[in-house]
Nucleic acid binder design. Structure first.
Length: 669
DNA sequence: GCAGATTGGATTTTT
DNA sequence: TCCAATCTGC
């Protein structure tokens, strides 16, 4: 059964004598190991699939793992597995243990923009970078399980002192709304498991074996959950790669790898070093580079796929020339090798770097897609509809109330809401409850109260129906009831309104399908959508034959035949802030992640000069280039930069080649 | 003095 | 691309 795996992979699947850490290098088949191990536990060891939990960081990874594991298992077993993100597991625990957490089971989940809006309200801070600093400081404390009181005494400077004050008020606000943020989805379950023995035992019985993916990305809260659930039995397999830890800035702590060894002295460590993705030369360069980092575990990737092409480095005059050159290289390479555009990826440090590349690719008429971008559920129109659903599920959700009551406009403005807010504040209740109280009749003029109560009745009717009726019909009635389509077309240009309305339709369809397939009520669905991101949208992006543009961070876990790493300059990669903050090692890992995305060829580039303001400055090539050793082919130093004529000649050559190929291909296809 | 236009500069992102 | 700071025209 395991004959198609290599020895360490097989060992990792079969090892069940205690806690296991699998150090899985890039492209070493870690998902394979996890899914096979799940199948092994069920088929060979008699585990009930309901007692196995696999935890990932993204919905995408969870979905992929679910599919692959189900494929290996027979019948319904796959469906019974608990494969989810940390956050989804947290939601599940919180919904069942809501009472112990002091929450109603229908609590709301606030996304980052909701949370940021609340922090902004409390702190009166509107400037983006300072607001973001506050939010991330608070989030950092929450992930370290530090309560507001402790944060206040730890505050190191003026900004932290402010953050601590905001943090306290923020937590109070969330509880008043019966809402939790993303950090709470991990933090509150961790607290519950730690403080309630009976509850802990119940969950330990329920989840008897844990498999954790991307372990190097865990924060201390997440590690607490793992440790508590696994208990002293240590029935878990953690899979990770310390060389690919690139998320320290958002709370991930590679130290958790070391902690695993101290907390579980009997921890077994298995390394997966055979890589099935890249040619040896690429791996050698990656190994040489990463060897510069202080390491806990030594690891050397190798491959039996052959040595491969040399790694090319080219030096461009400036950013425009770099982009132009990348576009040109992709075009000629593609036509020469008759490959697909989707075999090529351009990777960079910051999103803004994509812009020049886009322009250059468009000029060459090369199709491209930019990975990432705005997620479906972040769109205003989806958030509008979600606000109604959140309010239907949880009347205490004031942010949802405000958004719903003002979208579309129904004659309730800032004045009425402020008056209602004052009254609700005095009475220590939510806005929704406040407007139905007799006292509200004195606090607000009838002119304002009447439409408010009409709105309230509308929500109450929906709430009543939501308990029994199918989601699709109800959603359609909701949209009709608030005249959302009409409102969209009043607000926006026809084209814009059309797209937005289509998004809403897609949302309704998706909810409707879910309701029919899984027999879920609207209430149940509402409580899970906050965590779901792209739906199946990602698929159409992958199906188009297009060059992939991506940040290095977003490229983790993906692979491409031909990779172009651009902007390899001091200040960009490594980034200035990281150089100043002494965070070179994480930048080096980022470079490592980029290199190991490549299967066949890797092309590096940097600029000689970059314009900043009116004049342009010299740039220094990234230290990482020389740190890759001799596998990088240095460009010929003939001194002369290519002239306009040289470039014209290359364009002509390329055009001729395209024409030739087109001529050959056309008659047949 | 202000709204609208233009210019310039940019860490990284998921839940 | 997106956002904020600066500039222009009234």
């Amino acid at each position: 059964m395991l004959s198609d795996m290599n020895a360490p992979q097989r060992e990792a699947v079969k090892y069940l004598d205690g806690p296991l850490l699998v150090l899985a290098g890039a492209g070493s088949g870690k998902t394979r190991v996890i899914t096979r191990k799940i199948a092994y536990l069920v088929q060979e060891c008699g585990f009930d699939p309901r007692n196995i939990a696999a935890i990932t960081f993204t919905n995408k990874a969870a979905k992929e793992m679910q599919e692959r594991a189900s494929h290996l298992l027979e019948g319904r077993a796959g469906k019974q597995l608990n494969i989810s993100t940390f956050h989804a597991l947290g939601v599940k625990m919180l919904r069942t243990e809501a009472k112990a957490a002091g929450l109603k089971p229908a609590f709301s989940i606030l996304d980052s923009s909701d949370a940021t809006a609340i922090v902004s309200d409390i702190s009166k801070e509107t400037e983006k970078s300072r607001l973001r600093a506050l939010v991330s400081r608070i989030s950092g404390w929450k992930n370290a399980m530090l309560p507001p009181s402790a944060a206040a005494s730890h505050a190191a400077d003026e900004m932290e002192a402010l953050a601590a004050r905001v943090y306290e008020e923020y937590e109070r606000t969330l509880r008043a709304y019966q809402a939790v943020d993303f950090d709470d989805l991990i933090g509150i379950p961790a607290r519950l498991l730690a403080s309630d023995e009976e509850l802990l035992e119940r969950w330990q019985r329920r989840l008897r074996y844990l498999l954790i993916d991307e372990y190097q990305d865990t924060n201390s809260c997440q590690y607490q959950i793992v440790k508590l659930l696994a208990g002293h039995r240590g029935a878990f397999t953690a899979v990770g790669d310390d060389d690919q830890a690139i998320y320290a800035w958002r709370g991930a702590d590679v130290e958790n790898l070391r902690n695993l060894q101290t907390d579980y002295p009997k921890l077994k460590v298995i390394k997966l070093e055979q890589n099935y993705r890249s040619m040896q030369r690429i791996l050698s360069a990656a190994n040489t580079l990463i060897a510069r980092n202080e390491k806990l575990f030594d690891k050397k990737l190798w491959s039996d796929m052959g040595r491969g092409d040399p790694i090319t480095l080219f030096i461009a005059r400036d950013a425009d020339h770099e982009a132009e050159s990348v576009a040109m290289r992709i075009a000629s390479h593609k036509f020469e090798h008759r490959g697909k555009f989707s075999d090529y990826a351009v990777l960079y440090r910051g999103n803004h770097q994509a812009r020049v590349i886009e322009t250059a690719l468009r000029e060459q008429k090369i199709p491209y897609v930019i990975s990432g971008g705005q997620s479906f559920f972040d769109r205003a129109e989806i958030k509008d509809v979600m606000a109604y659903l959140r309010l239907v599920a949880n009347g205490d959700d004031d942010p949802a109330f405000i958004r719903a009551v003002t979208t579309p406009k129904r004659g309730i403005g800032g004045m009425s809401l402020e008056a209602l807010g004052r009254y609700a504040g005095e009475r220590h209740i939510g806005l929704f409850a406040a407007m139905f109280e007799t006292g509200a009749e004195h606090a607000l003029p009838a002119r304002a109260l009447t439409p408010l109560r009409e709105f309230g009745d509308f929500i109450n009717r929906l709430e009543w129906r939501a308990r029994t009726e199918a989601p699709r019909l109800l959603l359609e009635d909701l949209l009709r009831g608030i005249g959302y389509e009409t409102w969209l077309f009043e607000q926006f240009e026809p084209k814009e309104a059309e797209t937005r309305w289509n998004n809403v339709r897609e949302f309704v369809d998706w909810m409707g399908r879910k309701g029919e397939e899984d027999g879920k009520t609207l209430m149940e669905l509402t409580q899970t959508v906050a965590l779901i991101t792209m739906l199946d949208k990602r698929d159409d992006g992958e199906e188009r034959d297009a060059v992939q543009l991506s940040t290095l961070h977003a490229s983790k876990g993906l692979e491409y035949k031909h990779v172009y790493l651009i902007g390899l300059e001091e200040g960009i990669l490594p980034h200035r802030e990281s150089i100043d903050g002494g965070k070179i090692e994480e930048e080096r890992r980022l470079m490592y992640v980029g290199i190991t995305r490549a299967q066949r060829t890797l092309t590096l580039s940097h600029c000689e000069r970059r314009k900043s303001g009116r004049e342009s400055r010299d740039c220094e090539p990234s230290r990482f280039i020389s740190e890759m050793g001799e596998d990088v082919q240095r460009p010929k130093k003939d001194g002369a930069a290519p002239t306009a004529e040289d470039r014209a000649a290359r364009v002509a050559q390329l055009e001729a080649m395209k024409a030739r190929l087109a001529g050959k291909v056309l008659p047949g296809s």
